[in-house]
């Protein structure tokens, strides 16, 4: 079964542990700026948004690559870069609507989330559940439950107000 990273930005506390563990996993050093995930913040306004590859079905990065260096890993479903083929033109960076295609200045090449080969470290370390690695088949159900919970809250309020009004 195929899994996917699901981000719930409301649960993100902005600690950036995902950036840290991602950089250690991929580059063997701690350097959040070399991670495949980024927590974008508007700190003084209290906004926190994690940015990571969505592994799009119809991936713009794949579409735009002039040498077909990007391909989908059949097992994990991740869009991966073949550095032997990549010519370093960075067109994929332009194409990605999320800014999820990064650039590593040390090795002078683009970088992106590869789901750590099936054990994504960001999800492993995220205690709040802001980043989860879930079966694609349960994706819809997760969202439904969240939506239903919000609705349930409204309904409770309405019924209490109704009974209080008497």
């Amino acid at each position: 079964m195929s899994k996917i990273l699901v981000i719930d930005h409301e649960k993100c506390t902005g600690c950036r542990l995902c950036e840290l563990v991602c950089s250690v996993k991929h580059e063997r050093v701690s350097n959040p700026y070399r991670a495949r995930i980024k927590i974008v913040k508007w700190e003084m306004a209290g906004k926190i948004i994690p940015v990571v590859c969505q592994q799009c079905e119809d991936a713009p990065c794949m579409g735009v690559c002039p040498v077909n260096a990007l391909s989908r890993n059949a097992e994990t479903g991740a869009v991966e870069i073949d550095y032997d083929v990549c010519i370093g033109c960075r067109m994929c960076m332009n194409a990605c609507p999320f800014g999820a295609m990064g650039y590593d200045w040390v090795n002078s090449h683009v970088i992106k989330c590869d789901l750590c080969g099936g054990d994504p470290q960001c999800a492993r370390f995220c205690e709040t559940g802001a980043i989860q690695y879930v079966e694609k088949a349960t994706l819809g159900a997760l969202k439904q439950r969240k939506g239903a919970a919000a609705l349930a809250e409204v309904m409770t309020k309405v019924s209490t107000a109704y009974s209080e009004a008497g």
């Binding site: 506390t13 902005g14 600690c15 209290g46 205690e127």
Partner: peptide, 30 residues
Amino acid sequence: IGTAGCFGCQVHCRGRYFIKGGPYSGTYAE
């Protein structure tokens, strides 16, 4: 509206809120 953590911390003990009412209404604070 939730809590925030320091770098790499999963305890995230810092509250986040907006002030409601009064001269500072709408201000984001932690």
